[in-house]
Computed example of a mutant assay.
Amino acid sequence: LRPGQIRDSNGPMLAAAVAASGGRVVSMARVGDRERATYEAIAEAAATADLVLTSGGVSVGPHDLVRAAAAEAGFAPLLWRVRQKPGKPLFVAAREATLLVGLPGNPVSALSCFAHYVHPWLQAAAGRPFDWHRRRGRLAEPVAARDGRTHLVRVRLEADGVHPLARQASHMLTTISRAHGYLVVEPETALDAGSEVELFLYPWQATHNPRP
């Protein structure tokens, strides 16, 4: 890698997530922080796809160009930013029957938003009956959301209970690879060890049927 470059983890990761949700990837592209290139990539994808997924470029910095490029391509914004962690800078826009979802650039944020928002849309768009694949269990350790945001907490479902993973930062991709699913912890909520909770399995874990 040259200075300033990073490996593309989000592209292969999201392509695999789309496949796990029953979708088909028709094209993929990587673009730099240039508005014209971003516009051209969005416009080209929208010409053939029902859903355009982007990763990164949806926050508030000078290189966050997806919203402006989407508007130039004819997409009308539906929402921007969600009071949740991880995944606050989520962007959604529509152009006729085509949906654009601008996922955050951090890998865990991108995949968390995909599981919670994009996966259900793919199921509905394909006309499939949707199932969140919930499981119930008792927390092995306490969790809390104290910062005014909903927390999507990655967890493992083990024989002795539901275990929140230790590293919940939005760049810690290894934790989401180990997680069976996630808890939705509402703002200003604390759950004690032993509390009965409902977790959502990730789409790629649902067929593996983790132990209850």
Rank of each mutant, 00 (worst) to 15 (best):
R36E: 15
L183F: 13
A76H: 14
P77G: 12
R135N: 01
V18C: 04
P212T: 09
R36T: 14
L78D: 11
H163C: 04
A125E: 13
P129N: 04
F130Q: 09
A126K: 08
N10Q: 02
N10D: 06
T48H: 04
L78E: 15
E40I: 03
W80A: 15
E96G: 05
R146F: 12
L99H: 07
P89N: 00
V197S: 01
L53V: 05
E44K: 03
N106C: 08
P62K: 12
V58F: 00
L199R: 05
F130I: 02
G127E: 00
L51S: 06
R146L: 14
P210Q: 11
R149E: 07
V25L: 03
L111I: 09
V162A: 06
A169G: 13
A144G: 03
A46H: 00
D50A: 11
H151F: 13
G23M: 10
R36Q: 14
Q5M: 10
V162L: 10
S27W: 02
R128L: 12
V82N: 02
S27V: 01
G181M: 11
Y202N: 08
I176D: 15
N10M: 03
R135F: 01
A166N: 03
V18P: 07
A166R: 14
Q205S: 07
E186R: 14
H208R: 15
P129H: 04
H119G: 06
D131I: 00
T150K: 11
R167E: 11
L201Y: 02
P62N: 10
A190E: 13
S21I: 03
A169C: 01
R34Y: 08
E188N: 15
D50Q: 13
A124K: 12
A166T: 13
L53C: 06
L99T: 14
G22M: 05
R211D: 09
S21T: 10
A16W: 08
V153Q: 07
A145R: 05
A15Q: 14
E158V: 11
S109P: 12
W204N: 04
G4W: 03
F130T: 08
L99S: 07
Q205N: 15
W132R: 04
G57S: 06
S55I: 01
I176H: 10
P120N: 04
A29M: 02
R156W: 02
